[in-house]
Amino acid sequence: MRIGIVVDSACDVPADFIEQEDITILPVTVQIGNAVLADMRNEEATLNFLTGDTAAQAYNAETTPYTVQQVHDLFLNKLVLDYDYVFCICTTRTRSGIFDNAQQASYTILNDYKPVRAASGNNTPFALRVIDSQNVFAGVGVLAIEAARMRAAGETPPKIRAHLENLANSTHGYMVPPDLHYLRNRIKKRGDKSVSFLSAALGTALDIKPILTCHRGETSPVGKVKGFNAAVEKMFDFAGKRVRAGLLTPTMNLSYGGEMEEMRKLPGYERLRETCAEHNVEVFESFMGLSGLVNVGKGAMVLGFASEPHKFE
Rank of each mutant, 00 (worst) to 15 (best):
R2D: 10
R2I: 08
S9Q: 04
C11I: 03
D12Y: 01
P14T: 00
A15S: 15
Q20R: 13
I25M: 05
P27S: 08
V30S: 09
G33T: 07
T46D: 08
L47K: 11
L50T: 03
L50V: 04
T51D: 13
A55H: 09
A56I: 10
A56V: 09
A58F: 11
N60R: 04
Y66F: 11
T67M: 06
V80Q: 05
L81I: 13
I89N: 01
I89V: 05
C90S: 06
T91C: 06
T92K: 10
R95C: 07
S96W: 01
N101R: 11
N101S: 14
N111C: 12
Y113T: 12
A119L: 12
N122R: 13
P125C: 06
P125D: 11
N135I: 03
A138E: 06
G139L: 03
G141C: 09
V142F: 05
A144Y: 02
A147V: 06
A148T: 02
R149I: 01
M150H: 07
A152K: 13
A152Q: 10
A152G: 13
T156P: 03
R161L: 04
H163K: 15
E165H: 07
L167D: 08
T171V: 15
V176I: 11
L183P: 04
N185F: 04
R186Q: 14
K188F: 10
G191H: 10
K193S: 14
K193P: 02
F197M: 10
S199H: 13
T204F: 02
D207Q: 14
I208P: 07
I211V: 07
T213Q: 14
C214L: 09
G217E: 09
E218Y: 10
S220M: 09
S220C: 11
G223D: 15
K224C: 05
K226V: 11
G227E: 00
F228W: 06
N229Q: 15
M235P: 06
F236V: 11
G240K: 00
A245K: 13
T249L: 05
T249V: 15
P250S: 12
M252A: 06
L254Y: 02
L254S: 04
E259P: 07
E259Y: 12
R264H: 02
R264Y: 02
R264F: 00
P267M: 07
R271G: 12
R271M: 10
L272E: 03
E274M: 13
E274I: 11
H279R: 15
F287Y: 14
M288L: 15
G289K: 10
G289V: 10
S291G: 08
S291E: 08
S291L: 08
G292C: 13
V294T: 06
G297H: 05
K298G: 09
A300W: 05
L303F: 07
H310F: 12
H310K: 07
K311Q: 11
E313H: 14
